[in-house]
């Protein structure tokens, strides 16, 4: 079985077998990342371009390490602010990069659908590293990988996703992926942070956090963007934290062996308390480690799509 696609734009378009393949492949790459020499020659001579229109040291570094461990050359383009203000469109920028013979373009962009513009117009493989409020597919893959590694399976688990669902691409990708893999997904947050008709994606909606956590196998806490304050999604961060901060006591409503996840960076004391973030059930650092293996798997599998 192979991944028959040029680009990885979203989880929504992946079927169960494809997700399975990526996770299985990532398992082999995790072994590689545990070696003394963590580098294999697989993508020697290939060029990977990180095209980041939003600052994100984490995701960029993770992709960079993944590409380098596959022996690819990595070039980082950070575009601060909007390219439009410089009179250059996204497509112009991308065509320029492709003219430099990039095999992969990894794009992070504040506008939903920006990677799709590239994918439609370029021959390079495009990997979505987070677009607007839409998706962050590799994050969901590494989350699923981490869950599967810990719990031995995804099917049948109850996963509670807590916080700003509406503005979270991590939430969307995980909702698509987890439901496709047979998990029961709950989302919880104040009504203004729950996107319209989200039930149609196969999740159940809770406003009460404790109810949402009750009996959960996995708790996924989302980062709350501090800028959301003052837009009346909720009155203050203080009250948000009072209602939705994952504390030790609240975590007790989930199953005893529930694992706690967060895509990072963490706002300690706002969406998650420091004891929980650093506690035994927290897999936050494992998520980071697994991120590299999953991204290596994605690069490897896409390079075999025969399109590049």
């Amino acid at each position: 079985m192979e991944l028959k696609r040029k680009d990885l734009l979203d989880i929504k378009g992946l079927d169960q077998e494809e997700i399975q393949l990526i996770l299985d492949t990532a398992e082999s790459f995790k072994e590689v990342t545990g070696r003394e020499i963590k580098k294999v020659p697989t993508l020697r001579g290939k060029t990977v371009v990180n095209l980041f229109f939003e600052p994100s040291t984490r995701t960029r570094t993770s992709f960079e390490i993944a590409a380098k461990r596959l022996s690819a050359d990595v070039i980082n383009f950070s575009v601060s602010g909007s390219s439009v203000s410089k009179g250059e469109t996204l497509l112009d920028t991308a065509r320029n990069i492709e003219a430099m013979r990039a095999d992969f373009i990894i794009i992070r962009h504040p506008a939903s659908g920006a990677p799709h513009i590239l994918a439609r117009n370029l021959r390079s493989s495009v990997i979505n590293a987070g677009d607007g409020l839409h998706e962050h597919p590799t994050q969901a893959l590494l989350d699923m990988f981490t869950i599967r590694e810990r719990k031995g399976k995804i099917e049948g688990l109850t996963v509670a996703i807590i916080g700003d669902i509406a503005h979270s691409r991590v939430a969307r990708s995980n909702i698509y992926g987890l439901t496709r893999m047979g998990a029961r997904v709950r989302v919880a947050g104040p009504p203004a942070l729950i996107p319209a008709e989200v039930e149609t994606l196969g999740v159940s909606v809770f406003y009460d956090m404790e109810e949402a956590l009750s009996g959960a196998d996995v708790i996924m806490v989302l980062r709350i963007q501090l800028e959301r304050q003052g837009k009346n999604y909720f009155p203050t961060l203080r009250e948000f934290a009072r209602l939705y901060c994952l504390t030790q006591e609240r975590a007790g409503h989930a199953k005893g062996d529930a694992m706690i996840m967060h895509p990072g960076p963490v706002n300690r004391g706002i969406e998650i308390s420091p004891e929980v973030a650093d506690g035994l059930s927290s897999v936050i650092l494992e998520q980071v480690t697994n991120g590299v293996a999953v991204r290596m798997a994605v690069l490897y599998l896409l390079s075999g799509s025969g399109e590049i």
Partner: peptide, 8 residues
């Protein structure tokens, strides 16, 4: 539903 799916 569609705006939710597309993240717009």
């Amino acid at each position: 539903r569609v705006s939710t799916e597309l993240g717009l």
